[in-house]
Write a protein that binds this DNA or RNA. Structure first.
Ligand code: DCP
Ligand code: MG
Length: 1139
DNA sequence: ATCCTCCCCTAC
DNA sequence: TAAGGTAGGGGAGGAT
């Protein structure tokens, strides 16, 4: 285990050299810091060679004029400072100035710097610098082109001076190259609004996003990681079969035999030492050996007070991206603030970021290594894993020799940046070895050295162990891997979870079974900015979010993917945090709020993203002044591929979409668009070209199937190929209703109450629908609105027919009635739609044409796969699959005579607890029931869920209905009325006076806050009961889930919620109904009601009473939870709103 | 069991 | 002054 540092032999010579050595060794690499180059006499000659080489290599980055007319004195006596992004870039201007007699000042000095070159200069900066001459970069390039110094006045950035001055947009780069890696992404947004103010120091200002990203190191880091992976992939694909590096290796070491047996596997990890600083020092060799840090801040004293004074000297909150090893000796670390860094090391020199350079060196780095092998995994711009087993074995070179040779080549090719390397038989040990070898060294860790090596390695050094994990280790009193290896696996798993526990256990023993894989498929695309967010108006949010959406759009395009889930990510000021944090424009201490939405189809459209994101924001009803960070993420990605025309089925498209708010939005927007298009008044809305023909296999009763189709394209894509349109299909009379003046029939208040009452009976009816062996029935119960329209008709037919066959009856009225209810357009969403169409009705009527749809098309629709995900149909499957029956596990509803407990005693013959019909259990004689309970208790115990414990509770009888009623009547609901619980407690104690002979057991989850909750999806356990209340008995393990669906809940709740504000009458009805269900141990029905309730409330926008309904929802959840406490002695917990 | 969703955590 | 992004792993808890 020999750590190799510095020059080991001829090969490794220049590694520990001082600055002058570097200059000697690689004479074309030294550059200079501005303002000081004049001291060095031979500099220009020296520079010339370097530049010539660079012109060849990156001709497109350099002005051609500069190459032709190599030197001049155009800018004699001119000293410039470049601010922000310019074209030509700061780097180029620097070179131009050097070549043409001018001076380039990296830092602005009022006395000596004559001009500031900038395209956009923040207002604050002007004030701060008291800048006099601010000129556009074109001054430089035009002067160069003209061969003489042009009057700078013509290129003044703010010709008017002061106030309304703006940069002239036409002279700005057409595509602001905010990302330094050239051409990696086309610039997303070209800001050609000439009326904007140039300030973009906070979000809401135009172009803030680009300005921000251009300066964000973390953004670049993330971007480069992706690009490095792509580069590796490209190199792998385009490889021509030669490895020049290997040739050189051979030439150097010659053919020979390895004295040792070749190791089974050699993984190398390479990482540049203090990457940003190393690169930064290439042009500042005089700083080598001094402590240097790379960051935005310069002085370290931080922001000024209002009076323009620095209150404290070491207050800078600028983050040190990288610091060199001289600085680290003083205790500096990457990522710390500049203030404390300066405190630790007052002589610290700071250098600015040079993103383009980092990217350039990174590319060289990858190219060099790819000259040896393509078994590369890109980890970041300055770090990779290399599987060099092959090389070591084939060339008979030792791992150390190879590492040294490669490091030397990287050093040369990069112009003088040191990389360190670690080698071992797996990625973990390679990484740890690199860490040990730094700076400027390499280390090969052999298998027999591993355990000795690991003992003293801090746990913190293990990949995947960060702040949070260390907190836990601190409690476990473990610091090193040696300590870690003593912790038993079971404990690690308990503390960290299954996978992480196992991983840590392995890592402590030097075990790591990961290989070297570069490729991964993207799972998400996102963009976020959590800095500089200070907004006062909703419009500012909207503007910024649109900008962000456009950014995500281009990223989606670049990655050639679309996504079906959209997440709005917000950081909000923590209630306890001050309005302005310590860090200038920072986000400070925040709480994060995310909200996501499932889209009808995958999207990559900025328009859709912006609309949905803004809608989500409105639903959260958040005060924009509190927003400190905004992000948007797109997930559930699918590849964007041009579909072959043949694959696109134009003859039918899914007529059903879930009638959520956003779908309504899509629909209305698309409709509006169509109506406003002046192209054609015949076709657009109701086309019949895809309706004709196709009559081969029509159903016999076609006449019954005459429907009309209202069709509006609303896919987000302009370039969608083929007629893969979507629309809504309405029955003719529904279309009429939609467009007529007739009010949509409403449920009256009475009807609502009535419906709630009837639900109970209907519920019972629904449970028996499984009997008909229609696998979709459970889906219908849960998501009835997905079965709107013709599909429902179809199933209705099916059910009625089968029912008739089985029962020998011709029809069943209750079933019919239930379906009629589902089909009726009284649903709130329909009214919502109609409302939206109010102003456009005439226009629609004049333009549209109703087209009958044939039965065969309906038939196709019936075969729509029931592959339901979230709230969406999977469109692709629809197109390509003819008939695809989704197997849905049918729940067992035991007919009384075939009870499992009688037919078999073995555990395996018991159905899963949640599958057992409570009605069946209720019908069992008491002894048999006991037996069943015991069985399930045994099964449950065998499973041993660690967080669940059985707690003994005193038995309670369900309170008589009268009491429940009185209770809820007493409580005229007021906002935030807290007294329900105390009242309930009172009631309960009264109740519990009643003597109870037996104990009962309830499964209880112990929450961290110490409160108990019955988990809605677990189960209540045995209750002894009097013979006469047998029907109230709960199923042992599975009273909870899903047996008794309350089909009609959605339309009814939706109705209630859309039409009214919360009121006590409805609240009471709901609570009573729920309480009654609970007394019958129908937890599932209650749970389902709340799920549906939640969903419906969640669809509300803030202006439509969302706040009130959210409050009402929580209040009702409390009341029902309390009812549950009264009945079971344990509360029920329902899903809570975040807002 | 296995999946999904919503987080938190980690890395550079 | 300051530029605190971004993707993936995986745990917790719930749905199927
Ligand atoms: N908190 C951080 C960590 C890193 N980086 C950037 C700057 C680093 O130069 C680069 C590479 O990160 P490394 O972790 O490899 O750190 P260094 O290369 O700077 O130092 P080391 O010698 O430890 O590799 O990423 C950053 O901006 N902010
Ligand atoms: Mg590094």
């Amino acid at each position: 285990m020999k750590k190799v540092t510095g020059p080991g032999g001829g090969l490794l010579q220049p590694l520990d050299c001082n600055p002058s050595d570097i200059a000697l060794h690689s004479d074309d690499e030294a550059d200079h810091r501005e303002g000081e180059w004049a001291k060095h006499g031979g500099y220009m000659q020296f520079k010339k060679r370097k530049l010539l080489a660079q012109f060849d290599e990156a001709a497109d980055k350099i002005l051609p004029e500069a190459a032709e007319e190599f030197r001049s004195n155009i800018f004699h006596g001119i000293a410039v400072h470049v601010n922000g992004h310019t074209d030509p870039s700061a780097d180029e201007i620097k070179r131009i100035m050097m070549l043409h007699g001018g001076q380039f000042h990296l830092y602005y000095n009022r006395q000596t710097t004559g001009f500031i070159i900038a395209s956009i200069l923040p207002y604050t900066k002007i004030v701060q610098l008291k800048a006099k001459q601010v000129v556009k970069p074109e001054w430089i390039s035009e002067s160069l082109r003209a061969g003489k110094l042009l009057p700078w006045k013509d290129f003044e950035l703010y010709p008017l001076g002061g106030r309304g001055a703006q940069p002239q947009p036409e002279l700005q780069p057409k595509e602001p190259k905010r990302r330094s890696s050239k051409g990696a992404f086309p610039a997303a947004i070209s800001d050609n609004n000439p009326d904007h103010h140039p300030i973009a120091h906070k979000a809401g200002d135009p172009n803030y996003l680009n300005q921000y990203y251009a300066r964000s190191r973390l953004h670049h880091l993330s971007l480069w990681k992706v690009e490095a992976k792509q580069l590796v992939e490209r190199l792998q694909e385009e490889h021509d079969g030669t490895f020049p590096g290997v040739e050189r290796l051979l030439a150097h070491f010659g053919a020979r035999h390895d004295p040792r047996s070749s190791p089974r596997s050699v993984i190398m990890h390479i990482d540049f030492d203090c990457f940003f600083v190393s690169v930064g020092l290439l042009s500042r060799p005089h700083l080598a050996g001094k402590p240097v840090a790379c960051c935005h801040g310069k002085s370290g004293h931080g922001k000024m007070t209002a009076a323009g004074q620095h209150d404290q000297p070491f207050n800078s909150k600028s983050e040190v991206a990288s610091c060199n090893y001289e600085a680290r000796k003083k205790g500096l670390k990457n990522g710390m603030y500049l203030g404390p860094a300066k405190q630790l090391c007052p002589e610290l020199v700071t250098i600015p970021y040079e993103f383009e350079e980092y990217k350039r060196i990174s590319t060289i780095f990858y190219q060099v290594v790819a000259g040896y092998t393509l078994h590369i995994e890109a980890i970041s711009c300055d770090e990779m894993l290399v599987d060099c087993t092959q090389i070591i074995r084939d060339i008979f070179v030792s791992p150390e020799e190879f590492a040294g040779f490669l490091r030397q080549e990287i050093f040369d090719a990069s112009g003088g940046c040191h990389a360190s390397a670690g080698l071992s038989h797996n990625p973990l040990l390679a990484r740890l070895a690199t860490k040990k070898a730094k700076p400027n060294g390499h280390l090969f860790l052999e298998e027999d050295q591993v355990s000795a090596f690991l003992v003293d390695i801090p746990i913190r050094d293990l990949p995947g162990v960060g702040y949070s994990a260390m907190e836990k280790f601190h409690q476990l009193n473990a610091k090193t891997c040696g300590d870690l290896s003593k912790i038993p696996l079971s404990e690690l798993k308990t503390v960290f979870g299954q996978k992480i526990g196992q991983k840590l256990h392995n890592y402590a023993r030097g075990m790591d079974d990961r290989g070297v894989f570069n490729h991964t498929t993207r799972k998400s695309v996102s963009a976020e900015i959590n800095y500089g967010m200070r907004m006062t108006q909703f419009d500012e949010f909207k503007t910024f979010f649109e900008e962000l959406s456009r950014e995500v759009e281009t990223r989606l395009h670049t990655a050639r993917v679309r996504g079906q889930t959209l997440t709005l990510k917000l950081l909000l000021r923590h209630p306890d945090a001050p309005v302005e944090p310590e860090k200038f424009m920072g986000c400070g201490h925040c709480t994060s709020v995310n909200k996501s939405v499932s889209l009808v189809q995958p999207t990559d459209s900025a328009e859709v993203i912006a609309r949905e994101g803004v809608s989500l924001f409105r639903k959260l009803a958040i005060d924009v002044k509190e927003v400190r960070g905004i992000g948007v993420q797109v997930t559930r990605l699918v590849e964007t591929k041009k579909r072959a025309a043949a694959q696109v089925s134009t003859d039918w498209s899914p007529p059903l979409v879930s009638p959520t708010t956003h779908n309504t939005d899509h629909f209305v927007d698309a409709l509006e668009k169509t109506l406003n298009s002046e192209v054609d008044e015949e076709l657009p809305l109701f086309s019949d070209d895809d309706v004709a023909g196709d009559d081969g296999d029509e159903m016999e009763h076609e006449s019954n199937w005459k429907k009309h189709r209202l069709e509006v394209e609303y896919g987000p894509d302009e370039d969608w190929e083929g007629g893969d349109e979507e629309g809504w299909c309405f029955e003719a009379q529904v279309v009429d209703l939609l467009l007529s003046d007739e009010p949509v029939p409403r449920h009256t208040e009475e009807a609502v109450k009535q419906a709630l009452l009837e639900l109970k009976e209907e519920t019972e009816c629904w449970e028996h629908l499984n009997y008909f062996q229609i696998p979709e029935v459970p889906q219908m119960l849960t998501y009835p609105w997905r079965f709107y329209g013709a599909t429902m008709d179809f199933y209705q037919e099916q059910i009625v027919t089968r029912h008739a066959t089985r029962r020998g009856k011709s029809s069943n009225n209750s079933v019919k009635w239930a379906f009629w209810r589902l089909n009726a357009p009284q649903g709130a969403w329909f009214r919502r739609l109609k409302q939206r169409l109010l102003g456009r009705r005439g226009k629609i009527q004049s333009k549209l044409k109703l087209v009958p749809v044939t039965a065969s098309q309906y038939k196709r629709q019936m075969h729509m796969p029931l592959k339901v995900r979230g709230a969406n149909w999977e469109l692709d499957d629809l197109v390509t699959t003819e008939v695809k029956e989704k197997k849905i596990q049918t729940r067992l509803i035991f007919p009384a005579p075939c009870a499992p407990s009688t037919s078999a005693a073995t555990e395996s013959c018991y159905p899963s607890a949640s599958q057992v019909d409570p009605e069946f259990l209720a019908a069992l004689p008491a002894e048999l029931l006991e037996e069943v309970y015991e069985q399930y208790a045994a099964i449950a115990k065998a499973k041993e869920v660690s967080s669940l414990k059985v707690k003994k509770l005193p038995a309670q009888r369900p309170p008589p209905p009268a009491i429940t009623k009185r209770k809820s009547k007493k409580h005229k609901r007021m906002p935030n009325q807290p007294s329900i619980s105390s009242f309930a407690r009172h009631t309960k104690s009264q109740e519990s006076v009643e003597p109870d002979e037996k104990d009962r057991f309830v499964l209880v989850v112990f929450d961290s806050d110490g409160t108990d909750h019955v988990q809605a999806d677990t189960n209540t356990t045995p209750i002894h009961q009097d013979d006469q209340v047998v029907e109230r008995v709960a199923s042992p393990v599975g009273v909870a889930l899903g047996l008794s669906g309350s089909t009609d809940l959605q339309p009814v709740l939706s109705e209630v919620i859309l039409e009214r504000m919360p009121d006590e009458a409805v609240a009471e009805a709901i609570v009573d109904w729920c309480a009654d269900q609970l007394r019958r141990f129908r937890l599932s029905v209650v749970e389902r009601l709340f799920n549906t309730f939640y969903r419906e409330v969640d669809h509300l926008e803030w202006e439509n009473g969302r706040t009130e309904w959210v409050e009402e929802y929580h209040a009702l959840a409390d009341r029902v939870g309390q009812a549950s406490r009264d009945i079971f002695g344990s509360s029920l917990r329902f899903r809570q709103f975040a807002d």
